[in-house]
């Protein structure tokens, strides 16, 4: 039996469809609560704190934080979906066991969950994008590429979440994951201010977390600033996404087929 991403066929889309079908029947419960945090961020940081900050990196503060708010919206939605959501389907409902008793493989279930988490991240961040557009923070046509980046960022964090979900013995371990990684990542990754403010070692850690690259790429798009650092950032954003997806899919196989 082949392993990992290379063994994944289009059958994974059948599981994605299952999740989409369930989501659509409950969409009201899913869409609006997810927007609460990003909207709060827009008001608290963009408008509240922003009114005390003249400019950051040469632009109004809300324009500076917009990519950060988008990135956080994408990764948080994907993270919730692929931690609590996936764990619930895996452990409480045994849904995955039923699925892998069919020709769909455990690797495909892993891939479907990641893609689904990324889809939810895309939906939420795109709504946030529309809200931000009403505040007049976007001036360049390159912002139309933002959904591609938010989808990838969400995919990346969905993969990390699946690695965690497929390895933990009980749900309480998510507390450590959120407190130790997800929460710091939200603030460390150049979301609300440039990471050059941090001491050197912290900057290294921040650059390792792929969100930093994603946010910086998005900021280049919103501000239409092309810099050479975009090349390594893009390589790391894509490379880490593939590596994490590979690990996540294998980890799911390991968990589901003993």
């Amino acid at each position: 039996m082949s392993q990992g991403l290379l063994s994944v066929t289009s059958a994974f889309s059948r599981v994605w469809l299952r999740n989409a079908q369930v989501y659509l029947t409950l969409w009201k419960f899913n869409v609006f609560p997810a927007l609460a945090e990003p909207i709060l961020f827009i008001f608290v940081f963009g408008i509240g704190i922003g009114s005390y900050i003249d400019q950051m990196e040469g632009v109004p503060y809300l324009e500076f934080v917009a990519p950060g708010i988008l990135g956080i919206a994408a990764i948080m939605q994907a993270t919730f979906e692929c931690t609590y959501g996936s764990y619930f389907r895996m452990r409480m409902q045994n849904t995955f066991e039923g699925i892998i008793s069919t020709p769909v493989s455990a690797a495909e279930v892993g891939m479907a969950e990641i893609t689904w988490g990324a889809t939810r991240g895309l939906v939420t961040s795109t709504l946030v994008l529309v809200i931000l557009a009403f505040f007049g923070v976007f001036h360049n046509p390159s912002v139309l590429l933002l959904p591609v980046i938010t989808f990838l960022a969400a995919f990346n964090f969905a993969a990390i979440a699946i690695i965690v979900t497929s390895r933990i013995a009980q749900m309480e371990y998510f507390h450590f994951y959120f407190a130790g990684f997800v929460l710091p990542a939200q603030f460390l990754c150049g979301t609300f201010f440039p990471i050059s403010r941090f001491p050197e070692p912290v900057q290294v850690i921040a650059w390792i977390i792929p969100l930093t690259s994603f946010v910086d790429i998005m900021r280049s798009l919103t501000l239409a600033r092309i810099t050479p650092s975009l090349i390594p950032e893009t390589v790391w954003a894509l490379g880490s996404t593939i590596i994490l997806a590979e690990l996540a899919v294998r980890s799911m196989q390991h968990r589901l087929v003993e």
Binding site: R18, V22, Q93, N94, T95, E97, G98, S101
Partner: peptide, 9 residues
């Protein structure tokens, strides 16, 4: 399977 794993959703 021994334990039902119907999709409760």
């Amino acid at each position: 399977p021994q334990d039902n794993n119907l999709d409760p959703d």
